[in-house]
Design a protein around this nucleic acid. Structure first.
Lengths: 253, 253
DNA sequence: TGTATGCGTTATGTATACAATAACGGAGAG
DNA sequence: CTCTCCGTTATTGTATACATAACGCATACA
């Protein structure tokens, strides 16, 4: 039996996944700044995995859109402009609009709409409090993300679901991401209530198999988020609530 | 000096890229059947790269959507249903619609529209021949793909461009892919002419900054492709022209 | 005869050694 | 004083060796 292993290995999870999560954390927490080159050696030290899994993780994060390959070799943290972000939100809205249309046109049973209505009711409950507490807001973020995820699934279209997942990979484009942005505004609760109305309408449209209406409301939903993100960025208040803020380009380019 | 190297290495291109191209070829040519598990060892032998670049290539192909990770380990060739394919085409049409809208709303100079109009004129020239020759059809495929690529660029939205590229990665969803599907029909030329009309309209809409009209016509463009793909699959004529046909699920699922 | 268990083989996950290339710095010449 | 060229160094790209987990087969027991 060997006296001491060279390296402590956590066998409860794949090294590749471990490295991917650790690196994503570092990027989103701002430890690695946008535009900064990621050193493999450094990543090996901070993640505890060896170079092979680290490289796999880097490739996956590049495909995810958080990293950018450097032609001469290696990877750097991707930087996003304000317009990149608003476009990403609108993009996701367009995709979710298509998902809502598919759900409406292809038909959804009452049973399948249940989880959606449960989210709706739970959010209604949360929003009835004035003003909303931090804990309630946190619950809202989770419930809202769930609503969007369930709605996406109702499209029954694996390629579309896959694409929406990809579009949501960028943290500021995800449902929880733009909710965070909305929270940066003083009028947060009012905005949340408008969003909730959108949720209500999309369910109704799907029930009545009105594809065009279902699609339109989801796109409007995203446009609301874009407008509020713009406002939030102008005001620069409570922006620390917005995840992955570090990814936004600040310098001129 | 060593007498003979163990392995012949092609240094003109990265081993990872070489492996990725080789594997993609194998998948698209049907050497690897959908649902089939890909053996790393076998991939190493057929591509000539070693396991590390092969693994990177496999990860990239998985993200691209051609492969699927197996929970217990390894990768298999992804299989697509007919609906997956038509959804993918409609998905790309929706994305291109958004791109056209962005181009129209954000404004495009006459100079930037030039390449688009050149494609248009070149395709007009090709389609004036009756019946169209194989060579002319091949040129059409290239020109059509170029038209779509240039249009996408005009959106000036990196996140959207990226997403459209990803959506086009699936060969049957790419512009050239659905053109191929259209060619399977006897009425191919008529369909190409209708498509060309769409191209004309979208340029006009962008010039006049009519975002909604530009978007609508691109979505209609994709819907035309979906209808014709369905017809082509029913008729099963000349389907050998359709690339990556091997990816379509034939068995019941 | 059918099922369950254990062992052996094979393939994947991980780590590390080696090779090649690009970046950086210093020295020399104009 | 600056620009260029060469050498050194550091970092990435590639290959391979090792560890481990999964699969299949055979055998034994019910």
């Amino acid at each position: 039996m060997k006296a001491a292993p060279e390296r402590e290995v956590d066998r409860s999870i794949s090294q590749t996944v471990k490295a991917q999560l650790a690196l994503r954390d570092q990027i989103l927490s701002g430890s690695l700044r946008p535009g900064e080159r990621i050193s493999e050696l450094q990543a090996v030290e901070t993640t505890g995995a060896s170079r092979t899994p680290v490289r796999m993780a880097l490739v996956r994060l590049e495909e995810e859109g958080l990293l950018e390959g450097i032609p001469s070799g290696g990877f750097m943290v991707k930087a996003f402009s304000e317009r990149d972000i608003s476009d990403s939100i609108e993009l996701r809205g367009t995709l979710e609009g298509l998902a809502a249309r598919f759900a409406a046109e292809r038909g959804v049973s009452a049973r399948e709409l249940e989880p959606l209505k449960e989210c709706l009711a739970a959010i209604d409950e949360l929003l009835s409090q004035v003003p909303i507490s931090i804990e309630a807001f946190s619950s809202y973020v989770t419930l809202n993300a769930r609503f969007h995820a369930v709605l996406t699934e109702l499209s029954r279209s694996p390629p579309l679901i896959r694409q929406i997942d990809r579009a949501s990979a960028l943290p500021f484009a995800s449902p929880s991401g733009f909710v965070m942005a909305q929270s940066a505004l003083p009028e947060a609760q009012q905005i949340l209530i408008i969003g909730q109305e959108h949720h209500r309408v999309v369910i109704d449209a799907i029930e009545n198999r009105e594809g065009a209406r279902a699609e339109a409301i989801m796109r409007e939903h995203a446009r609301l988020a874009v407008r509020n993100l713009r406002l939030a960025l102008r005001n620069r208040t409570h922006l620390d609530l917005l995840p992955a803020l570090a990814l936004i380009k600040t310098a001129t380019d």
